[in-house]
């Protein structure tokens, strides 16, 4: 059972609007991505993206390992095309390859469509997709929609969720 914050009426779980006063029951927490206070790391200007950058087909299959320190989870994802980072939602049946829903993603400020990792002529690149709380690469806050080369051992923060990346 849940309680309406406005009129205090008890409502069944899953109700979208309070049947007594009409208030929307889901606006905080569950439905929306939490906006976190702006974090303190990395205000240094990010390195400029390479000029001659272009996406390329991957020459051979590649495994990328993601380590999530707070849950001690380790995810190995084969790169084919792209690795989308985000949370799964009910609007689409589309699951991002690196789905952070179960890593407490919503609370830690991970957007549904947060970032993507792709292959280019400069190797692996990370691109923030205009996420609500931004993406930090080694404490650099990335401007959205610009590619930044990734190296093995890099530290990425999606919102407030810290992840280490390793690959060969």
């Amino acid at each position: 059972m849940i309680q309406c914050k406005e009129c205090g009426a008890t409502q069944y779980e899953g109700a979208l609007f309070c049947s007594e006063c009409g208030r929307f029951l889901m606006e905080d927490g569950r439905a929306a991505t939490d906006v976190l206070p702006f974090s303190d790391y990395g205000h240094r200007p990010p390195p400029p993206p390479p000029d001659d950058f272009r996406l390329e087909a991957l020459p051979e299959a590649k495994n990328i390992t993601f380590v999530i320190p707070h849950s001690r989870h380790r995810r190995v994802i084969g790169l084919a095309g792209q690795i989308r980072v985000g949370r799964s939602g009910s609007e689409t049946d589309d699951f991002p390859e690196l789905d952070l829903t179960d890593e407490n993603g919503a609370e830690l400020g991970v957007s549904r469509v947060h970032a993507t990792i792709q292959w280019s002529n400069h190797g692996l690149v990370l691109i923030d997709l205009e996420s609500t709380n931004g993406t930090l690469l080694n404490n650099y806050r990335l401007p959205p929609k610009r590619p930044y080369p990734l190296r093995s051992g890099d530290e990425i923060r999606f919102g407030d969720l810290l992840i280490h990346v390793f690959f060969e």
Binding site: L16, F17, S19, G22, F24, M26, R30, A31, A32, R87, S88, G89, S90, E91, T101, D102, A106
Partner: peptide
């Protein structure tokens, strides 16, 4: 541990209107 996913927008909109009708 269900995934926390927002309900589809169209659906929320329709339920909002319907809720007013029922009030």
């Amino acid at each position: 541990n269900p995934l926390e996913a927002a309900p589809p927008k169209d659906l929320v909109k329709a339920v909002r209107m319907l809720n007013m009708y029922r009030m």
